[in-house]
């Protein structure tokens, strides 16, 4: 019996650690974007390397949790939902990491007057992912708070979309930029926006999973 409670506690800790990786990834992303926009590329690359390491660690944790949940036949009623949530949240972390990597590879030009707008866009997208993590934690521990956090995700995602639209309108209204240049910048705005969209998709799934958990 001690072994039963012990193995449950171990997986609980691993799930918490996995979710911590997503929060950590978001913080590194925000810092990385800030350094990029400020032209501090060395520090940017350092944050990117940390983020890639962190993503690998999260992947490893997710696989470990999934294997243990199946081999130890834990939470049989909700296992499918939990695995789905973990995989989707891992996809959000991947999106965060891929976006920052694209900045490093493609080096999109920074428009000085739109710097704050872009930073704000990144901050809002990450805020959506942070509330997503809070929602998942509540799904495991405090169902009554899931709804409030999902609402915050929706709000942050809408805010991200609004900022992204504003950014894209600004770019495409500029006569001095080539179309290819405009499309390149739009692609990056879209990529950041996808982080919030993915977080919202996960929360739609989470809302249904939470209903199933009510006895």
């Amino acid at each position: 019996m001690i072994q039963l409670f012990g193995s449950h506690k171990q997986i609980e800790t691993e799930i918490d650690e996995f979710l911590d990786q997503i929060i950590g990834g978001g913080l590194l992303f925000k810092k990385g974007i800030k350094f990029y926009l400020d032209g501090r590329f060395e520090e940017f690359e350092q944050r990117l390397a940390e983020l890639i390491e962190l993503e690998k660690r999260a992947d490893h944790l997710r696989r470990d949790i999934e294997t243990k949940l199946y081999t130890k036949t834990l939470i049989p009623e909700f296992r499918g939902d939990v695995l789905g949530l973990l995989e989707h949240s891992d996809a959000v972390l991947n999106q965060i990491s891929d976006t920052l990597l694209e900045f490093s590879v493609e080096k999109p030009e920074t428009l000085d007057d739109l710097r704050d707008l872009k930073h704000e866009l990144a901050k809002n997208a990450i805020k959506a992912s942070e509330f997503m993590v809070k929602s998942i934690r509540c799904y495991f521990r405090d169902l009554s708070a899931v709804r409030d956090n999902i609402k915050q995700v929706h709000f942050s995602r809408e805010e991200t979309n609004r900022l992204s639209e504003k950014y894209k309108r600004e770019i495409f209204s500029r006569k001095e930029l080539r179309l290819s240049h405009k499309m390149h910048l739009r692609y990056f705005a879209r990529s950041i926006e996808n982080i919030a969209d993915d977080a919202e998709d996960l929360c739609d799934r989470l809302a249904i999973a939470a209903i199933k958990r009510y006895i």
């Binding site: 019996m1 039963l4 409670f5 449950h8 506690k9 997986i11 609980e12 799930i15 834990l74 939470i75 909700f78 939990v82 799904y139 495991f140 521990r141 405090d142 169902l143 009554s144 958990r213 006895i215």
Partner: peptide
Amino acid sequence: LAKRWLGNARIHMLQMDAWTRL
């Protein structure tokens, strides 16, 4: 009773699973 208690207890899903098995 269970609904009321579980609503307030805030037990982690995995701990709940272990208690349910027991």
